[in-house]
Design a protein around this nucleic acid. Structure first.
Length: 905
RNA sequence: GGGCCGGUAGCUCAGCCUGGAAGAGUGUUCGGUUGGCAUCCGAAAGGUCCCGGGUUCAAAUCCCGGCCGGUCCA
């Protein structure tokens, strides 16, 4: 959508003498006070001239830039809001926090929930993976992590805060007064923004080539391709905190401004000579001309730098490539620290994969730099550097460093495979092509440049195409997309019929211990029944739906399941009853089943919190299921649990039970809940409501939950963890039983013990001793068999009868039951040259003939002859095997003799 | 969630394509060489060829299903 010019023609501009001009390069309109300006002062239409400006040379660090930004807006009526984690765990449509507005979507931006303050200001650390390939080579234009300073105003129809003029005025004031940039250097470039289903006009604030902020005016919702005006008009600004720091410091690259002395420390740690500042500064100045997708622009850039400095282009290339690698490591180690600090567990799927990707990229670069420095050491430097700004780095320091070490070990294992694989490839006669590289990367994860590097050492040249990763991506695109439609437990027509009924009153929340109730029928259609209120809990949050009975006129009808459609509860009966609307009925839930479900559900919260307290903040629920029989909980964790850890979790859980802690559900507005308890309340899933139900286990755990729970942890009775397994990389599954199911579990174990004991004819008390004895006896028996085999071998090889036919030594063995012995004997006898050994044995009605020959004879001749005689089978070289029907032992021997006589061998 | 690769001696793996007597290196034990160690020489022990089914006279090998591990993509 092209916004109309009027959207940008602000009173502020007209009152302050700004002119609308058009960039001579990109033709984009922009507003400026500078009558001579011809371009929009943004890359690539302009180089980074700001590096040569005197304005705003204040030397602000990132930390100071953030503080100045927040303070400026706080003094102008904005409340400072703390940032959220870089993992967007309060929503299910995003893995990473990619912008400050993400914190307020979708419930605040849609107007369902009020914002935590209005207007507000925030500095939100963000992670974007889009440009991960370009980090470093553009000297700071692309980063995977940055802080977005945002001041936001939410304008409601009945409550206006501020809109475009004020926003632009704030920007002008901030940049002129705080940064000391003269106002005719400021440009407001007209632009259009779309994202997350919203859209609106925007201004990009550019100075000397650098875009310092984007001012977005969210006013449309994109619905089926149409732009529908939003009820709420939202000021969504993004100030680049790192760019502000760079602008005020005018360091050679953005990395110098962000990481300060860490830049030199990294060069030294990685054993790389530092790169000349002037060279970097010039490289930065022209960095806007680099289009990473177009390799020729990179070559041009290097040429340009070489020309400007009068240095050979090869030297420029080497120096800048080395610097780019260091910058990439700087960037990735910070991003990794932030992700892990907020609880990411590297894995092969989901957000965990994004973390692993960054770690692997950093490790790969370390390998190319030829350093054996541990990645965790570099991450440690980042933790020390950023720990004050992001305390979660210090809090989770041990976890971060350990997990990085574990990932490095895994990567090294991978790389060690590379040499044997490349050995194999280089030995194979065929030429090694792109297909091999793709194959190795896709199925073994070996980066193509590493394989190419390895092969080069062996003298095999192989080119890795620049678009390698898009080739891989393409290969995956052709994979068929299987849609996994939820198997609905309710038929379509029932859902349609039911969805307009009013919400069912949830008696199961009013009193979680109530067992019977009365209600009025709202809809009764074959096996499906909707009431005005119910005690039957509908399946949700991993808790199964209730079972029980509906009682009408003393007749009990079984309820086999309970489901919900929105807020409407549907009872599923075991037979069809068609009741009239308005009829009164009674209901009773299957209390024993329900109580077991409640115990297992509350137990799940207890166990999760225990695991978290024991293992660390990175433990996050990745799935759960509660049945009356048992419960299971999947948690994110990077190592298998040790036996001690499992016991500790169990002990902690049981001590919470013995503590008899109150368990209290309550309703709260979601923004308040997030501010008070953090986003970990969403472990079990993100509810789709403005007001959410929280469950608090006093002093232990607070979590969003819609299930039914016991009122006190004492009611769980007991917890026994019965199984743990790694279900995929980075995810551990815990299975446990609670309450009376612990007794049932113990009984099952007991039964197994008794069963095994009786089979071994002993008591369960003496089972271990008995097993040891049996194992010993088994070993002794094996030894004895080996002894007898040896004896038999001697005896047999001495007693065999051999005859010589046509220069061939023919040996007919007697029938031997022991196949091992037979083979052993053949092997021994055929070690003499010109020997044919025959073994004939009876197998269900047929004769099985095994033939063994010494190496100078091929078994083929005899095999062919026996085939002609109706035998089935074959063989090759020195061994053959046939099955012959309707022939006697003697006949077969005659055939063989005859074959030898004819010289058929 | 989808794709690809793998599972053989304690460990690292070959054999599988093209079905036909289960292999190598390393480690272990024993013996020899040596004043002793390293080294070297010789021998032995060590196997559910991941599990289940199918095809076949015959399956580590081919086919189907499952389990486990790795990896790429989303």
């Amino acid at each position: 959508m092209k916004a109309s010019e009027m959207e940008y023609r602000l009173k502020f501009f007209l009152d302050n003498g700004f002119q609308r001009k058009e960039c001579k390069v990109c033709k984009t309109p922009f507003w400026t006070l500078d009558r001579t300006r011809e371009d929009c002062a943004d890359i690539p239409c302009s180089d980074y001239h700001f590096l040569d400006m005197k304005e705003g040379s204040l030397n602000w660090s990132v930390s100071e830039s953030r503080k100045k930004f927040l303070e400026f807006f706080r003094k102008r009526g904005h409340e400072i809001i703390p940032p959220k984690p870089v993992l967007a765990r309060w929503r299910e449509d995003l893995y990473l926090t990619i912008a400050s507005i993400v914190d307020f979507q979708p419930y605040i931006t849609s107007g369902l929930v009020p914002p935590p303050a209005n207007p507000l200001v925030i500095s939100q650390p963000c992670i974007r993976m889009d440009d991960v390939d370009n980090v470093g080579i553009t000297f700071g234009r692309h980063l995977t992590t940055f802080e977005m300073g945002g001041h936001h105003a939410f304008n409601y129809p009945d409550k206006f805060v501020y809109w475009k003029d004020e926003t632009v005025s704030y920007a002008k004031e901030f940049f002129t007064k705080e940064l000391g940039i003269s106002e005719d250097l400021l440009n407001f470039k007209e632009s259009w923004w779309e994202g997350g289903g919203n859209a609106g006009p925007s201004f990009e604030v550019t100075v000397g080539g650098l875009e310092l902020a984007t001012l977005v005016f969210m006013q449309y919702e994109i619905s089926a391709g149409d732009y529908v005006p939003l009820k709420l008009k939202i000021v969504d600004t993004g100030y680049g905190i790192e760019r502000i720091a760079w602008f005020t410091q005018k360091t050679p690259t953005a990395f110098h401004a962000i990481y300060g002395n860490l830049v030199d420390t990294f060069f030294d740690k990685l054993g790389q000579p530092r790169v000349d500042s002037e060279l970097l500064r010039v490289a930065s100045r022209f960095a806007g001309r680099i289009d990473p997708d177009n390799i020729s622009t990179l070559v041009e850039h290097r040429n340009l730098v070489a020309k400007a400095l009068g240095i050979p282009v090869d030297v420029v290339k080497d120096e800048l490539n080395r610097a780019a690698r260091i910058f990439q490591v700087l960037d990735h180690t910070k991003t990794v620290a932030l992700m892990l600090g907020d609880g990411l567990v590297p894995s092969s799927s989901g957000e965990g994969y994004l973390g692993r990707l960054l770690i692997r990229r950093a490790l790969r670069t370390l390998k190319f730099l030829g350093t054996d420095v541990k990645l965790s050491e570099l991450v440690k430097l980042q933790i020390n550097f950023w720990g004050y700004d992001f305390p979660q780095l210090l809090r989770n320091r041990d976890y971060i460093l350990d997990v990085v070490d574990v990932e490095q070990e895994k990567f090294q294992e991978l790389i060690s495979k590379t040499s044997s694989l490349s050995e194999f490839l280089s030995k194979s006669k065929r030429s090694i092509g792109l297909e091999d590289l793709v194959e190795l990367y896709d199925s073994n994860g070996i980066p193509p440049d590493i394989i190419a590097d390895e092969l080069r050492k062996k003298g095999i040249q192989i080119e890795v195409p620049h678009n390698f990763y898009s080739i891989v991506a393409k290969r995956h695109q052709v994979a068929p997309l299987k849609k996994d439609k939820d198997t609905l437990k309710l038929p379509e027509h029932i859902i349609n019929e039911v969805k307009d009924i009013r919400a069912t009153e949830a008696l199961y929340y009013k009193d979680q211990y109530a067992r019977s109730f009365d209600a009025t029928v709202l809809l009764s259609k074959s096996k499906y029944l909707v009431l005005d209120r119910t005690l039957f809990y509908p399946e949700g949050g991993g808790q199964l739906g209730d079972q029980g009975w509906i009682i009408l006129n003393g007749d009990r009808v079984r309820v086999v399941d309970t489901q919900k459609v929105g807020d409407i509860v549907v009872h599923i009966l075991d037979r069809e009853i068609n009741l009239e609307k308005g009829m009164r009925i009674e209901g009773e839930i299957d209390w024993e089943r329900r109580f077991r479900l409640m115990r297992h559900h509350t137990a799940t919260h207890v166990v999760l919190a225990a695991a978290k307290k024991l293992l660390g903040d990175h433990v996050w629920q990745a799935g759960a299921e509660k049945t009356p029989q048992k419960a299971r909980l999947d948690i994110t964790h990077y190592k298998p649990l040790t036996a001690e850890e499992i016991r500790k979790i169990e002990d902690m859980a049981n001590s919470v039970i013995n503590d008899r802690r109150p368990v209290r559900p309550f309703e709260i507005n979601r923004v308040e809940a997030e501010m008070k308890y953090g986003v970990s309340i969403y472990e079990g899933g993100v509810p789709n409501k403005a007001n959410i139900r929280l469950l608090e286990i006093e002093g232990w755990d607070v979590e969003s939950c819609g299930g039914t729970h016991v009122w006190n942890t004492g009611d769980i009775g007991a917890i026994k963890i019965v199984k743990t397994e790694k279900i995929q990389d980075g995810i551990i599954r815990l299975e446990y039983v609670a309450g009376d199911m612990v007794s049932r579990y113990a009984r099952e174990l007991e039964d197994k013990l008794v069963n095994v004991s009786s089979k071994l004819e002993t008591s369960s008390d003496q089972l271990e001793m008995k097993v040891e004895k049996l194992l010993r006896e088994h070993q002794e028996a094996k030894n004895l068999i080996a002894y007898y085999r040896k004896e038999a071998l001697e005896l047999l090889s001495r007693s065999i009868q051999e005859r010589s036919i046509n220069g061939i030594r023919l040996i007919i063995l007697p029938q031997i039951k022991d196949q091992e012995l037979e083979k052993e004997l053949m092997r021994r006898l055929t070690s003499q040259s010109k020997t044919l050994v025959v073994h004939i044995t009876q197998t269900n009605g047929e004769l099985r003939v095994d033939l063994g020959t010494s190496r100078d004879i091929d078994v083929k001749g005899v095999v062919e002859r026996l085939k002609e005689m109706g035998g089935k089978g074959g063989g090759r070289g020195t061994f053959g095997s046939m099955v012959v029907a309707n022939k006697s032992r003697e006949e077969i021997i005659d055939y063989i003799k005859e074959t030898i006589e004819r010289g058929g061998l």
